[in-house]
């Protein structure tokens, strides 16, 4: 009794089911083509050729194939009603088949291909956020029903991405603002000026400029070279001419009066220290003694000096007696 039934099944049932099962499987891989639903239209044809044809179609599903298009058109009407019945039948059929035909090679062969199909579908369907309702409806019966939740809302990944992107942009803007605020605090406004803040650099500039001013404005009629050397060493740019103008009368009168001029910086304050630029205010006392007539006096002065660090040394670039 058993044997004839099996024989009858394997002879009559199996071939007729095979294309259908394969077709269902195929529908999955060629899911986009609604045309795969032809398994309801031609249930028992049992030819392998159309299957292969469709299989080859799969990678090119985006190409509008006239044949598949007509197929799809057919399926559109017949497919919908078929859909559930078919897959249900497929589910039932495969389950019974699994029980009954577990030993037969014929029944076993579809299994790997089904697994194959499943994985293929998994790849596909994740991308297929936008799909027709029929397809998504068919999916739970055909494949993993758990995945349905993730893909069901048609544009969810896009929405999530958009929300994330907007958030990212907003926070990036915030980060930029933080950066600008921090930068301006550190490098603009009062903080840009390191006078008195950088104590070592401040006292270095103060000492260097004070020494330069004392040497520049000291003059001995018997050693003019000393002052000339100082001018060469400490002055540059506009300061060269400014110094000439300031010191002109001293140079003219000093020799005949046998004048000795000694300048002392009594106070100095750095008003600006930024990178290689500095500005220093100095109080200078000029002690002038004329050995010719024995007259002497102390003359207070105030000097504003701008300097630049060039090749590691501070040079006076600009100076004036009464600035502002």
């Amino acid at each position: 009794m058993n044997v004839p039934r099996r024989a009858a099944r394997s002879r009559g049932d199996a071939p007729s089911r095979k294309p259908r099962v394969a077709g269902t499987r195929n529908r999955a891989s060629a899911r986009e083509e609604a045309g795969t639903r032809e398994n309801g239209v031609r249930p028992a044809e049992g030819e392998t050729a159309p299957e292969e044809e469709r299989d080859t179609d799969v990678p090119e599903r985006h190409r509008p194939d006239p044949e598949t298009l007509t197929d799809a058109g057919e399926a559109e009407e017949a497919g919908n009603s078929d859909e559930h019945g078919n897959s249900d039948e497929h589910a039932r059929g495969s389950s019974t088949r699994d029980e009954e035909d577990s030993g037969t090679p014929e029944a076993v062969t579809p299994e790997p291909s089904e697994a194959e199909w499943d994985s293929e579908r998994a790849e596909d369907s994740e991308v297929d956020a936008v799909e027709t309702g029929e397809d998504t409806a068919a999916r739970p019966t055909a494949g993993g029903s758990g995945r349905g939740g993730w893909f069901a809302p048609s544009s969810r990944p896009t929405t999530v991405a958009a929300v994330l992107l907007v958030l990212a942009l907003g926070i990036a803007g915030l980060a930029y603002w933080f950066h600008e605020e921090a930068h301006s605090l550190r490098h603009e406004g009062p903080a840009a000026n390191e006078a008195l803040v950088d104590e070592a650099a401040t006292s270095e500039v103060k000492g260097r400029i004070s020494t330069a001013v004392e040497k520049l404005f000291s003059y001995d009629y018997s050693n003019v070279e000393k002052t000339d050397k100082a001018a060469e060493k400490f002055l540059t740019d506009e300061a060269v001419e400014q110094y000439e103008t300031m010191f002109e009368t001293v140079r003219e009168q000093a020799p005949e009066q046998k004048m000795v001029l000694t300048s002392t910086v009594t106070n100095a304050g750095v008003t600006l220290l930024q990178d290689d630029r500095a500005e220093v205010l100095l109080f200078v006392n000029q002690d002038a003694t004329s050995t010719a007539n024995g007259k002497s006096g102390v003359y207070p002065a105030q000097l504003t000096v701008r300097a630049q660090k060039r090749d590691g040394t501070w040079k006076i670039t600009d100076m004036s007696q009464f600035s502002g």
Binding site: E32, L69, V127, V130, T132, P157, T158, L165, A168, I171
Partner: peptide, 27 residues
């Protein structure tokens, strides 16, 4: 059928979520 136009752009769209998430994390 009606979805035939989009498959080519699909892989690109798939990366939008992780990319946006990475950008968010960076920011």
């Amino acid at each position: 059928m009606n979805t035939t136009g989009s498959p080519k752009t699909r892989p690109a769209r798939w990366w939008t979520v992780p990319t946006a998430a990475a950008l968010l994390a960076l920011s």
